[in-house]
Amino acid sequence: MADTPGDALHLRRFRPEDAAWLIERHDTLYRRDEGFDASFGELVAKIINDFLAEHDATREAGWVAEENGQRLGSIFCVSAEKTTAKLRLFLLDPGARGKGLGKHMLRHCMAFARAAGYRDMVLWTHESHRAACALYAATGWQLIESRPVHSFGVDLVEQNWTITL
């Protein structure tokens, strides 16, 4: 894609051969950084397998960020309702952070949702993802719900965010 933050960095469409990498990166990073148990990797695998089995290519897409052929992260736009898109599987390897790539990925995903006819987007995350939450707030997303939960083997504060496109 021509719309990239740097010459070596680019976004490309998610391909089936990316699935194992994406599941592994989510599982590894969230175990290491958040203390999550195996149920998180299982959830990511289910989301990816469902996407591969039944996504609507005109209204749903996933992208992988790469630099010189190395995968750095992912972001997905899926349908939540007829006019509401859901942001999913937004991940950026720690070494790739701080370069503006996350903002680029988020804006690209939101532009796709707008072009696909969605009026708004939602996402679900955890309060501990401070950098991602700061990015959401800086790009106009609104926090609409925050509540303590016990998920993936740890105590968390779950958050739901929304934005009008």
Rank of each mutant, 00 (worst) to 15 (best):
K86T: 06
G140S: 03
D50G: 14
T162P: 00
A132K: 10
L11D: 01
R12W: 06
G117D: 05
A111H: 11
I48E: 11
A111L: 10
M105H: 02
I144Q: 10
L9E: 12
A134L: 14
E145K: 11
M105S: 05
L11M: 08
L87G: 12
G102P: 07
L43F: 12
P16T: 08
R71K: 15
E17S: 10
A2W: 08
A131T: 15
R71I: 13
M1E: 11
F152T: 01
D93N: 11
T28N: 07
V78L: 09
V157W: 09
K103S: 11
G73I: 03
N49T: 12
E158R: 06
Q142M: 05
F90H: 03
T162S: 09
H129Y: 10
L89P: 01
A132M: 04
V78N: 09
G153V: 11
R12H: 04
D120A: 11
R130Y: 09
M1S: 15
A96H: 10
R25K: 13
Q70I: 03
Y136A: 09
W63G: 00
M110I: 06
H26L: 08
R15I: 00
K103D: 07
R88G: 02
L22A: 15
Y136C: 09
P94W: 01
R88T: 04
L9P: 02
G140C: 06
R12S: 03
C133G: 04
T4C: 09
F14Q: 01
G98S: 12
R59F: 02
A80C: 04
A131F: 09
D50A: 15
D27N: 03
G73H: 03
G35S: 12
F112M: 02
R12G: 05
H150V: 10
R114A: 06
R15E: 15
V157A: 15
G98P: 14
Q159F: 03
L165C: 14
A116I: 06
V157L: 11
D37M: 04
E60M: 04
S146W: 00
R31L: 05
I163E: 05
R114I: 00
L156N: 07
I23Y: 05
A137L: 13
M110L: 12
Y118D: 06
A61G: 06
P148E: 15
T125L: 07
R25H: 07
K99I: 00
G153H: 10
L52S: 09
R119L: 14
H150Y: 09
E67Y: 05
E127Q: 13
L106G: 10
E54D: 14
E145N: 13
D18F: 03
R130Q: 14
G62Q: 05
L156D: 09
D155M: 05
A65M: 04
I48P: 01
C77N: 04
G41L: 11
V122S: 14
A134P: 07
K99N: 06
Q70S: 03
E17K: 03
H10D: 06
A53P: 03
L101T: 00
V64T: 08
R31S: 10
A45R: 07
L22N: 04
E127D: 14
V122R: 15
Y30H: 13
A38G: 06
H104G: 00
A61N: 12
R31Y: 03
D37N: 12
W141P: 05
R114G: 04
A45D: 10
R97H: 01
W21A: 13
L22H: 01
D120C: 08
T4F: 07
T4G: 08
H108Q: 12
A111G: 13
D155Y: 05
L106T: 04
A80I: 00
